[in-house]
Protein backbone atom coordinates (compact mmCIF):
# COMPACT_ATOMS: atom_id res chain seq x y z
CA UNK A 1 0.00 0.00 0.00
CA UNK A 2 1.09 3.53 -0.75
CA UNK A 3 1.40 5.83 2.17
CA UNK A 4 -1.52 8.13 2.35
CA UNK A 5 -0.96 11.69 3.41
CA UNK A 6 -4.50 12.97 2.98
CA UNK A 7 -6.95 13.81 5.69
CA UNK A 8 -10.66 14.41 5.27
CA UNK A 9 -9.99 18.15 5.39
CA UNK A 10 -8.23 17.91 2.04
CA UNK A 11 -11.53 16.90 0.49
CA UNK A 12 -13.74 19.51 2.16
CA UNK A 13 -14.35 22.75 0.29
CA UNK A 14 -14.87 26.16 1.87
CA UNK A 15 -18.54 26.19 0.84
CA UNK A 16 -21.37 25.84 3.33
CA UNK A 17 -23.37 22.67 2.75
CA UNK A 18 -26.90 23.79 2.00
CA UNK A 19 -28.94 20.60 2.04
CA UNK A 20 -31.88 20.54 4.44
CA UNK A 21 -31.05 19.51 8.00
CA UNK A 22 -31.69 15.77 8.28
CA UNK A 23 -31.28 15.13 4.56
CA UNK A 24 -29.65 11.79 3.77
CA UNK A 25 -27.23 13.49 1.38
CA UNK A 26 -25.10 14.78 4.26
CA UNK A 27 -24.15 11.26 5.26
CA UNK A 28 -23.20 10.27 1.73
CA UNK A 29 -21.09 13.40 1.33
CA UNK A 30 -19.26 12.52 4.48
CA UNK A 31 -18.76 8.94 3.40
CA UNK A 32 -17.45 9.92 -0.03
CA UNK A 33 -14.98 12.33 1.55
CA UNK A 34 -13.85 9.55 3.89
CA UNK A 35 -13.58 7.12 0.99
CA UNK A 36 -11.54 9.64 -0.99
CA UNK A 37 -9.25 10.10 1.97
CA UNK A 38 -8.76 6.40 2.33
CA UNK A 39 -8.22 5.88 -1.39
CA UNK A 40 -5.39 8.39 -1.17
CA UNK A 41 -5.86 9.86 -4.65
CA UNK A 42 -4.94 13.51 -4.83
CA UNK A 43 -7.85 15.97 -4.96
CA UNK A 44 -6.05 17.48 -7.95
CA UNK A 45 -6.33 14.16 -9.79
CA UNK A 46 -10.00 13.80 -8.94
CA UNK A 47 -12.98 15.23 -10.80
CA UNK A 48 -16.53 15.20 -9.49
CA UNK A 49 -19.24 15.77 -12.08
CA UNK A 50 -22.91 16.24 -11.33
CA UNK A 51 -26.12 17.12 -13.12
CA UNK A 52 -29.07 18.96 -11.61
CA UNK A 53 -31.01 18.17 -8.47
CA UNK A 54 -30.42 18.33 -4.73
CA UNK A 55 -27.62 15.79 -4.76
CA UNK A 56 -26.01 17.47 -7.75
CA UNK A 57 -24.90 20.38 -5.58
CA UNK A 58 -22.34 17.91 -4.36
CA UNK A 59 -19.24 19.08 -6.33
CA UNK A 60 -19.28 22.45 -4.55
CA UNK A 61 -18.73 20.68 -1.27
CA UNK A 62 -15.68 18.63 -2.17
CA UNK A 63 -12.33 20.25 -2.70
CA UNK A 64 -11.50 18.48 -5.96
CA UNK A 65 -11.89 19.54 -9.57
CA UNK A 66 -15.59 19.61 -10.24
CA UNK A 67 -18.36 20.59 -12.56
CA UNK A 68 -22.01 21.12 -11.73
CA UNK A 69 -23.51 20.67 -15.16
CA UNK A 70 -26.99 20.46 -16.65
CA UNK A 71 -29.92 18.21 -15.98
CA UNK A 72 -29.32 14.60 -16.93
CA UNK A 73 -26.05 15.12 -18.75
CA UNK A 74 -23.47 14.49 -16.06
CA UNK A 75 -22.85 10.96 -17.35
CA UNK A 76 -22.02 12.26 -20.83
CA UNK A 77 -19.83 15.04 -19.48
CA UNK A 78 -18.03 12.67 -17.13
CA UNK A 79 -17.53 10.32 -20.11
CA UNK A 80 -15.77 13.17 -21.92
CA UNK A 81 -13.58 13.97 -18.91
CA UNK A 82 -12.51 10.37 -18.44
CA UNK A 83 -11.97 9.63 -22.15
CA UNK A 84 -9.88 12.77 -22.53
CA UNK A 85 -7.78 11.98 -19.48
CA UNK A 86 -8.03 8.40 -18.20
CA UNK A 87 -5.53 9.20 -15.45
CA UNK A 88 -8.16 11.16 -13.56
CA UNK A 89 -10.43 9.52 -11.01
CA UNK A 90 -13.90 10.58 -12.05
CA UNK A 91 -16.93 10.50 -9.78
CA UNK A 92 -20.42 11.27 -10.91
CA UNK A 93 -23.01 12.32 -8.40
CA UNK A 94 -26.59 12.06 -9.52
CA UNK A 95 -30.14 11.49 -8.34
CA UNK A 96 -33.03 9.27 -9.38
CA UNK A 97 -34.52 11.97 -11.61
CA UNK A 98 -31.25 13.22 -13.05
CA UNK A 99 -29.85 9.78 -13.76
CA UNK A 100 -32.87 7.67 -14.63
CA UNK A 101 -35.38 10.11 -16.16
CA UNK A 102 -33.76 12.90 -18.17
CA UNK A 103 -30.37 11.22 -18.10
CA UNK A 104 -31.49 7.65 -18.68
CA UNK A 105 -30.03 7.38 -22.15
CA UNK A 106 -26.57 8.51 -21.09
CA UNK A 107 -26.68 6.22 -18.07
CA UNK A 108 -27.36 3.03 -20.02
CA UNK A 109 -24.78 3.90 -22.67
CA UNK A 110 -22.09 4.60 -20.10
CA UNK A 111 -22.76 1.14 -18.67
CA UNK A 112 -22.68 -0.46 -22.11
CA UNK A 113 -19.35 1.21 -22.88
CA UNK A 114 -18.01 0.41 -19.43
CA UNK A 115 -16.25 3.73 -19.03
CA UNK A 116 -14.42 3.97 -15.73
CA UNK A 117 -16.74 6.28 -13.76
CA UNK A 118 -17.84 5.98 -10.16
CA UNK A 119 -21.52 6.81 -10.32
CA UNK A 120 -23.18 7.50 -7.00
CA UNK A 121 -26.93 7.46 -7.47
CA UNK A 122 -28.77 9.20 -4.63
CA UNK A 123 -32.17 7.54 -4.69
CA UNK A 124 -34.81 9.29 -2.57
CA UNK A 125 -37.68 8.36 -4.90
CA UNK A 126 -38.75 11.98 -5.28
CA UNK A 127 -37.95 15.24 -7.06
CA UNK A 128 -36.86 17.40 -4.14
CA UNK A 129 -35.43 20.50 -5.78
CA UNK A 130 -38.67 21.12 -7.69
CA UNK A 131 -40.56 20.53 -4.45
CA UNK A 132 -42.06 17.11 -4.57
CA UNK A 133 -43.02 15.34 -7.77
CA UNK A 134 -42.83 11.57 -8.22
CA UNK A 135 -39.65 10.24 -9.79
CA UNK A 136 -38.85 7.23 -11.97
CA UNK A 137 -38.10 5.24 -8.83
CA UNK A 138 -41.32 6.15 -6.98
CA UNK A 139 -43.46 3.11 -6.25
CA UNK A 140 -46.67 2.53 -8.23
CA UNK A 141 -49.51 4.45 -6.68
CA UNK A 142 -47.21 7.01 -5.07
CA UNK A 143 -49.00 10.22 -4.21
CA UNK A 144 -47.15 13.45 -4.90
CA UNK A 145 -47.90 16.95 -6.15
CA UNK A 146 -47.83 15.74 -9.72
CA UNK A 147 -49.62 12.48 -8.92
CA UNK A 148 -52.37 13.54 -6.48
CA UNK A 149 -54.32 10.36 -7.24
CA UNK A 150 -51.28 8.12 -7.22
CA UNK A 151 -48.97 7.15 -10.07
CA UNK A 152 -50.10 4.60 -12.62
CA UNK A 153 -46.61 3.61 -13.71
CA UNK A 154 -43.99 1.19 -12.48
CA UNK A 155 -40.65 2.43 -11.18
CA UNK A 156 -37.22 1.55 -12.47
CA UNK A 157 -35.17 -0.64 -10.21
CA UNK A 158 -31.65 0.73 -10.64
CA UNK A 159 -29.98 -2.67 -10.18
CA UNK A 160 -32.16 -4.20 -12.87
CA UNK A 161 -31.48 -1.30 -15.22
CA UNK A 162 -27.74 -1.50 -14.56
CA UNK A 163 -27.59 -5.21 -15.29
CA UNK A 164 -29.90 -4.85 -18.29
CA UNK A 165 -27.46 -2.33 -19.72
CA UNK A 166 -24.62 -4.83 -19.10
CA UNK A 167 -23.23 -3.04 -16.05
CA UNK A 168 -20.42 -4.78 -14.24
CA UNK A 169 -20.47 -3.12 -10.85
CA UNK A 170 -23.49 -2.48 -8.71
CA UNK A 171 -23.67 -1.83 -4.98
CA UNK A 172 -26.42 -0.59 -2.73
CA UNK A 173 -26.26 1.20 0.57
CA UNK A 174 -28.39 3.13 3.03
CA UNK A 175 -27.71 6.70 4.07
CA UNK A 176 -27.87 5.61 7.69
CA UNK A 177 -25.35 2.82 7.25
CA UNK A 178 -22.09 4.75 7.19
CA UNK A 179 -19.85 1.73 7.33
CA UNK A 180 -21.40 -0.05 4.36
CA UNK A 181 -21.55 3.23 2.43
CA UNK A 182 -17.87 3.91 2.86
CA UNK A 183 -16.99 0.32 2.16
CA UNK A 184 -18.92 0.09 -1.11
CA UNK A 185 -17.67 3.50 -2.25
CA UNK A 186 -14.08 2.38 -1.89
CA UNK A 187 -14.78 -0.81 -3.81
CA UNK A 188 -16.63 1.19 -6.47
CA UNK A 189 -13.68 3.53 -6.87
CA UNK A 190 -11.26 0.63 -7.13
CA UNK A 191 -13.37 -1.09 -9.74
CA UNK A 192 -12.17 -0.42 -13.28
CA UNK A 193 -15.23 0.31 -15.36
CA UNK A 194 -18.58 1.94 -14.70
CA UNK A 195 -19.56 1.37 -11.11
CA UNK A 196 -22.99 2.21 -9.81
CA UNK A 197 -23.61 2.74 -6.12
CA UNK A 198 -27.28 3.18 -5.32
CA UNK A 199 -27.53 5.13 -2.08
CA UNK A 200 -31.00 4.94 -0.61
CA UNK A 201 -31.38 8.38 0.93
CA UNK A 202 -34.17 9.98 2.85
CA UNK A 203 -35.76 13.25 1.73
CA UNK A 204 -36.81 14.64 5.04
CA UNK A 205 -39.05 17.31 3.50
CA UNK A 206 -40.88 15.73 0.56
CA UNK A 207 -40.59 12.00 1.03
CA UNK A 208 -39.75 11.44 4.64
CA UNK A 209 -39.44 7.80 5.62
CA UNK A 210 -39.56 6.39 2.11
CA UNK A 211 -36.90 3.85 3.01
CA UNK A 212 -37.77 3.51 6.69
CA UNK A 213 -39.27 0.05 6.26
CA UNK A 214 -35.75 -1.20 5.75
CA UNK A 215 -33.62 1.54 7.23
CA UNK A 216 -35.19 1.86 10.68
CA UNK A 217 -32.95 0.35 13.32
CA UNK A 218 -35.62 -2.03 14.57
CA UNK A 219 -36.16 -3.67 11.15
CA UNK A 220 -32.91 -3.15 9.38
CA UNK A 221 -31.15 -6.35 10.35
CA UNK A 222 -34.12 -8.50 9.41
CA UNK A 223 -35.07 -6.72 6.23
CA UNK A 224 -31.68 -6.17 4.66
CA UNK A 225 -28.67 -8.31 3.93
CA UNK A 226 -25.16 -7.02 3.50
CA UNK A 227 -23.57 -9.05 0.77
CA UNK A 228 -19.85 -9.68 0.81
CA UNK A 229 -17.96 -11.51 -1.87
CA UNK A 230 -16.96 -14.99 -0.72
CA UNK A 231 -19.15 -14.94 2.38
CA UNK A 232 -22.37 -16.84 3.02
CA UNK A 233 -25.57 -14.84 2.62
CA UNK A 234 -26.51 -14.73 6.28
CA UNK A 235 -28.55 -11.94 7.85
CA UNK A 236 -31.00 -11.17 10.60
CA UNK A 237 -30.86 -9.72 14.05
CA UNK A 238 -29.81 -13.11 15.36
CA UNK A 239 -27.66 -13.92 12.29
CA UNK A 240 -29.76 -17.01 11.78
CA UNK A 241 -31.37 -16.27 8.43
CA UNK A 242 -29.92 -17.06 5.08
CA UNK A 243 -30.61 -17.24 1.39
CA UNK A 244 -30.86 -20.43 -0.61
CA UNK A 245 -31.91 -21.28 -4.13
CA UNK A 246 -35.17 -23.08 -4.63
CA UNK A 247 -36.01 -23.83 -8.24
CA UNK A 248 -35.23 -20.65 -10.14
CA UNK A 249 -35.80 -18.40 -7.16
CA UNK A 250 -34.13 -17.23 -4.02
CA UNK A 251 -35.64 -18.17 -0.72
CA UNK A 252 -35.03 -17.02 2.81
CA UNK A 253 -34.57 -19.79 5.39
CA UNK A 254 -33.83 -19.97 9.06
CA UNK A 255 -30.75 -21.89 10.08
CA UNK A 256 -31.68 -24.85 12.26
CA UNK A 257 -35.21 -25.08 10.95
CA UNK A 258 -36.28 -27.83 8.51
CA UNK A 259 -32.82 -29.33 8.68
CA UNK A 260 -31.15 -26.23 7.22
CA UNK A 261 -27.53 -25.67 8.18
CA UNK A 262 -25.07 -22.92 7.36
CA UNK A 263 -23.66 -25.17 4.63
CA UNK A 264 -26.92 -24.91 2.67
CA UNK A 265 -26.62 -21.14 2.42
CA UNK A 266 -25.46 -19.50 -0.77
CA UNK A 267 -22.00 -17.96 -0.81
CA UNK A 268 -21.93 -14.56 -2.53
CA UNK A 269 -19.93 -14.47 -5.75
CA UNK A 270 -19.78 -10.83 -6.90
CA UNK A 271 -17.19 -11.78 -9.53
CA UNK A 272 -19.40 -14.22 -11.41
CA UNK A 273 -19.66 -13.15 -15.06
CA UNK A 274 -23.20 -14.44 -15.42
CA UNK A 275 -25.62 -11.79 -14.19
CA UNK A 276 -28.58 -14.05 -13.46
CA UNK A 277 -28.10 -14.39 -9.73
CA UNK A 278 -26.99 -10.75 -9.41
CA UNK A 279 -30.29 -9.81 -11.01
CA UNK A 280 -32.14 -11.84 -8.44
CA UNK A 281 -30.14 -10.45 -5.56
CA UNK A 282 -30.43 -6.88 -6.78
CA UNK A 283 -34.20 -6.97 -7.02
CA UNK A 284 -35.03 -8.71 -3.72
CA UNK A 285 -37.95 -7.24 -1.79
CA UNK A 286 -41.04 -8.34 0.11
CA UNK A 287 -40.27 -11.56 1.94
CA UNK A 288 -36.66 -11.35 0.90
CA UNK A 289 -34.22 -8.88 2.42
CA UNK A 290 -33.09 -5.88 0.39
CA UNK A 291 -29.50 -6.50 -0.65
CA UNK A 292 -26.87 -4.01 0.46
CA UNK A 293 -23.16 -4.12 -0.27
CA UNK A 294 -21.48 -4.99 -3.54
CA UNK A 295 -23.80 -7.19 -5.58
CA UNK A 296 -21.67 -7.39 -8.71
CA UNK A 297 -18.02 -6.55 -9.32
CA UNK A 298 -16.71 -8.01 -12.58
CA UNK A 299 -13.69 -6.77 -14.48
CA UNK A 300 -14.03 -6.04 -18.19
CA UNK A 301 -12.21 -3.82 -20.69
CA UNK A 302 -12.92 -0.14 -20.01
CA UNK A 303 -13.84 2.31 -22.74
CA UNK A 304 -11.33 5.00 -21.77
CA UNK A 305 -8.37 2.62 -21.79
CA UNK A 306 -9.53 0.87 -24.97
CA UNK A 307 -9.69 4.23 -26.77
CA UNK A 308 -6.21 5.03 -25.54
CA UNK A 309 -4.95 1.61 -26.57
CA UNK A 310 -6.44 1.89 -30.04
CA UNK A 311 -4.76 5.27 -30.56
CA UNK A 312 -1.46 3.75 -29.48
CA UNK A 313 -1.85 0.67 -31.69
CA UNK A 314 -2.68 2.76 -34.76
CA UNK A 315 0.23 5.09 -34.08
CA UNK A 316 2.59 2.17 -33.81
CA UNK A 317 1.39 0.92 -37.18
CA UNK A 318 2.10 4.30 -38.78
CA UNK A 319 5.39 5.38 -37.27
CA UNK A 320 6.04 7.75 -40.18
CA UNK A 321 3.01 9.94 -39.35
CA UNK A 322 3.61 12.36 -36.52
CA UNK A 323 2.03 15.55 -37.73
CA UNK A 324 -0.85 16.62 -39.91
CA UNK A 325 1.53 17.48 -42.73
CA UNK A 326 2.91 13.92 -42.72
CA UNK A 327 -0.59 12.62 -43.16
CA UNK A 328 -1.56 15.13 -45.85
CA UNK A 329 1.40 14.06 -47.92
CA UNK A 330 0.07 10.50 -48.00
CA UNK A 331 -2.95 11.72 -49.99
CA UNK A 332 -3.24 11.83 -53.74
CA UNK A 333 -1.36 15.03 -54.52
CA UNK A 334 0.15 16.90 -57.43
CA UNK A 335 2.85 19.49 -57.69
CA UNK A 336 2.57 22.93 -59.19
CA UNK A 337 6.07 24.14 -60.00
Amino acid sequence: METNNYTIKDFKSDQDVRWCPGCGDHAILNSIQKAMTELGISPDQTAVISGIGCSSRFPYYVNTYGMHTIHGRATAIATGVKTANPELTVWQVTGDGDCLAIGGNHFIHALRRNIDLNIVLFNNEIYGLTKGQYSPTSKRGFISKSSPYGTVEDPFRPAELTFGARGNFFARTLDVDLKTTQDVLIQAAKHKGTSVVEALVNCVIFNNGTHSAISDKEFRADRTIILKHGEPMIYGKDRNKGLVIEGFNLKSITIGENGMTEKDILVHDAKCEDRTLHFKLGTMSGDLPVALGVIRDVEAPTYDREVEKQVKDVQEKHPQIHKLEDFLRTLETWEIK
Binding site: A76, T79, A84, H109, I321
Partner: peptide
Protein backbone atom coordinates in the same frame (compact mmCIF):
# COMPACT_ATOMS: atom_id res chain seq x y z
CA UNK B 1 -5.97 7.98 -34.53
CA UNK B 2 -2.56 7.97 -36.21
CA UNK B 3 -2.44 11.63 -35.17
CA UNK B 4 -3.72 10.89 -31.68
CA UNK B 5 -7.27 12.15 -32.20
CA UNK B 6 -9.87 10.78 -29.78
CA UNK B 7 -13.46 10.54 -30.99
CA UNK B 8 -16.60 9.40 -29.22
CA UNK B 9 -19.58 8.41 -31.31
CA UNK B 10 -22.05 9.44 -28.69
CA UNK B 11 -25.52 8.04 -27.96
CA UNK B 12 -27.18 11.25 -29.12
CA UNK B 13 -26.49 14.85 -30.14
CA UNK B 14 -26.63 16.04 -26.55
CA UNK B 15 -24.05 13.49 -25.47
CA UNK B 16 -21.93 14.53 -28.45
CA UNK B 17 -21.59 18.07 -27.17
CA UNK B 18 -21.52 17.00 -23.52
CA UNK B 19 -18.61 14.60 -23.97
CA UNK B 20 -16.83 17.46 -25.74
CA UNK B 21 -17.52 19.78 -22.81
CA UNK B 22 -16.17 17.15 -20.44
CA UNK B 23 -13.06 16.75 -22.59
CA UNK B 24 -12.63 20.52 -22.70
CA UNK B 25 -12.86 20.69 -18.91
CA UNK B 26 -10.18 17.98 -18.83
CA UNK B 27 -7.90 20.04 -21.09
Amino acid sequence: KDLGVKTVQAEDEIAGVCTAIGASFAG
